[in-house]
């Protein structure tokens, strides 16, 4: 019990020390902050490696190889070969690992296309259509208000998309500027973008503020804890 309490206290003291090291950045970049960041990178990298081994490699590669059916064992053996070749990427024979990376890139590209079409493109287009479709409006809300809001959403979507259109015609004697109509519409898109980024910025700020409050209350609790321990030992 004493051991557990001691471990808890060491953890608390370590957390306090690391918090102070990171907060020292408020005085400018310094060796204490860099020390905390390097500890963080080391621990995070190891933690990610452990989670990957425990949650992916053991259940999907090792366990089927030992306890799986004949098909699963065969599939795991087939998976082992490109996995082993992937390790050549950190050796001077790195070219031997290229075909393993090619499998990964091919699958990744196809999954990204499929995911973008089914997960973003169709749902967002459907959402835009629904925002100007009266049959999807709520009964309790004002219909005119909902229509105007829907139009604003669609205008925002289209003008933001147009803002990212940077194609120009290659005409001799003319500058490589966009067409005037595209340039004007993109200005409206820029306003919508500034509103979106403002909303996102406020969200990130609130999250960071919550973290700051949590850290400050942790420091306060730590000081109280030390005070309590000192008081009880007296």
């Amino acid at each position: 019990m004493i051991g557990a309490n001691l471990l808890d206290f060491i953890g608390l003291a370590l957390g306090f020390l690391l918090t102070i090291l990171v907060f020292s950045y408020l005085l400018g970049d310094n060796p204490f902050f860099r020390l905390a960041v390097h500890i963080f990178i080391g621990v995070s990298a190891a933690y990610v490696a452990l989670v990957t081994i425990n949650n992916v490699l053991i259940p999907r590669l090792i366990v089927p190889l030992i306890n799986g059916s004949r098909g699963e064992t065969l599939l795991s053996i087939l998976l082992f070969i490109p996995s082993l070749f992937l390790f050549f990427k950190v050796t001077p024979l790195r070219k031997l690992g290229n075909w393993s990376v090619a499998i990964l890139v091919g699958i990744g590209a196809a999954a990204a296309i499929g995911g973008a079409i089914t997960g973003t493109l169709f749902p967002q287009i459907l959402g835009s259509i629904n925002s100007v479709d009266p049959s999807t409006y709520t009964v309790s809300g004002n219909k005119w208000f909902q229509t105007i809001n829907g139009i604003i959403v669609v205008v925002g979507t289209l003008t933001t998309l147009i803002y990212f259109h940077f194609g120009t015609q290659d005409v001799p004697g003319r500058t490589d500027k966009r067409l005037p109509i595209i340039e004007n519409i993109s200005q409206i898109g820029k306003v919508f973008l500034s509103i979106t980024f403002g909303a996102l910025y406020a969200g990130v700020f609130l999250t960071a503020l919550a973290a700051l409050v949590e850290r400050l209350s942790f420091l306060w609790e730590f000081f109280n804890k030390i005070g309590f321990e000192l008081f009880s030992s007296l």
């Binding site: 990212f164 898109g189 403002g198």
Partner: peptide, 16 residues
């Protein structure tokens, strides 16, 4: 409303 419009434009751009 306006932030949703901009975000939707961004998401569609990323998807494309």
């Amino acid at each position: 409303v306006p932030a949703l419009g901009g975000a939707r434009g961004l998401l569609l751009g990323i998807a494309l």
